[in-house]
């Protein structure tokens, strides 16, 4: 009886040791923060064109 109880206890304790198996390994320089909506915007060709025009308007000697 005592043995069974002890065994159950051990099991119980061990059960508490269980955790998800897919562990997060540290991967250097992999961004961990929240997503920047700018990234999606930058992908649009219109936005790229806008920035190019802006450059030509303002930073050339004219």
């Amino acid at each position: 009886m005592r043995k069974t109880f002890f065994g159950a206890l051990c099991l119980l304790i061990l059960a508490g040791c269980y955790g998800p198996v897919d562990i997060a390994y540290h991967e250097p320089a992999r961004y961990m923060g929240s997503m920047d909506p700018l990234l999606a915007k930058e992908r649009s060709p219109e936005q790229q064109e806008l920035l190019l025009q802006r450059f030509n308007k303002g930073q050339t000697d004219r």
């Binding site: 991967e27 961004y31 961990m32 923060g33 920047d36 930058e42």
Partner: peptide
Amino acid sequence: DCFYTTEDGIVLHD
């Protein structure tokens, strides 16, 4: 790891 680089190559951080 709070740094990220945007599609345009801009280095930003959180």
